[in-house]
């Protein structure tokens, strides 16, 4: 019997569960390891340092311009691995599905997950599915974990940040957060916003090939935006960051949306951008290398690491003033003031 929506029985572990796994999950995500359906994925690994990460994805709406929760959950974990310099190879994926989700929607999500995994060159090798009653989850929640191998001699950590290092951003900020917001009810603004969600591992690999260990720190500015990531760097390194407002790329429509809503693009989420702190002398080489990659075309050196004030990020404004950039507090809300 065919169903067009997820029922509680699809999560019961019985025949329907099996049907769902075979006809939907394996059909879309299958590969030689996942197809085994063992309790664990079993594989060989090379000698060396492994990176291991996990992240839960909840997003409303689950489909948005430029992607969906499937693509997001694959890219996010690939990116987390990449930010430690690891070359990602395997992912796991767990699904918590709300009863009533359309099976076609689920298939679309799995297809884009697979596509993102293919782009990144990784495989989804194990997973799990649970179904919960209506209202107990919002359509679908996905948790992915991933492992990757860190090339010999690479050590990327904010502790390696030194005064004088260059701060490089891989492209425009705010695209993901505004694309999501534009889909929510009640705000009523429109433009051709497109989320930047993308796997960054190939970009990172080419950067590492170019300058190797001259890359001191790297992070993807997701929730909390660029401001939060730079603050995290500054706090861990106990150094200051000085960035320049006119160097930070922001698309016109993102700027427009921010003006309308009273938002600051520095605090808006990105899903396909990275910010890296590199040895000063290597700055231009890294930048040139990033600009050759499609995901780094708009990369810019946006500032530098300074000794003081420790643990703080300051921004040189367009008119030459300076201000402190704090961590984000709570979500930004549309405001009149």
């Amino acid at each position: 019997m065919q169903f067009d929506r997820i029922l509680l029985s699809h999560g019961s572990g019985g025949r329907l569960s099996q049907q769902l796994i075979h006809d939907v999950f394996l059909k879309e995500l299958g590969n030689e390891i996942l197809d085994e359906l063992n309790d664990s994925a079993v594989f060989n690994v090379a000698e060396g340092k492994l990176a291991y990460t996990t992240d839960a994805y909840v997003v409303s709406p689950i489909f948005f311009p430029g992607g969906d929760i499937g693509r997001l959950s694959a890219c996010g974990t690939v990116n987390d691995l990449s930010m430690s310099g690891a070359k990602p190879f395997y992912l796991s994926a767990s699904f918590i599905i709300e009863e009533g989700l359309s099976i076609n929607d689920l298939k679309t999500i799995l297809m884009s997950m697979k596509q993102a995994a293919d782009e990144a060159g990784v495989k989804i090798v194990c997973g799990d599915t649970k179904v919960v009653g209506r209202g107990m989850a919002d359509k679908v929640f996905i948790t992915t974990s991933g492992i990757g191998l860190i090339p010999d001699g690479i050590d990327i950590s904010p502790r390696r940040i030194r005064p004088g290092d260059s701060v490089i951003l891989s492209g425009t900020i705010g695209d993901h957060g505004i694309a999501i917001l534009s889909q929510r009810e009640g705000l009523g603004f429109s433009s051709d916003f497109i989320s930047d969600v993308a796997p960054l591992n190939h970009l990172v690999a080419s950067m590492l090939d170019e300058v190797g260990n001259d890359i001191h720190a790297m992070r993807d500015p997701t929730r909390g935006g660029l401001a939060t990531t730079l603050n995290e760097f500054a706090q861990v390194a106990n150094l200051g960051m000085r960035i320049y407002e006119d160097k930070i790329p922001v698309q016109d429509n993102i700027r427009g949306a921010c003006e309308l809503l009273g938002f600051d693009p520095l605090y808006i989420a990105n899903e396909g951008k990275l910010v890296t702190i590199v040895e000063n002398v290597a700055g231009d080489r890294v930048l040139a290398c990033m600009k050759r990659h499609p995901l780094g075309i708009n990369a810019e050196i946006i500032g530098e690491v300074v000794e003081k004030p420790e643990g703080m990020v300051s921004l040189v404004t367009r008119i030459g003033g300076t201000r402190v950039i704090d961590m984000m507090v709570g979500d930004q809300l549309p405001r009149i003031c």
Binding site: G188, S190, S191, D252, N253, L260
Partner: peptide, 9 residues
């Protein structure tokens, strides 16, 4: 109305 390519009523 429009600003930076963003439209709103």
């Amino acid at each position: 109305v429009e600003i930076g390519g963003v439209k709103r009523q």
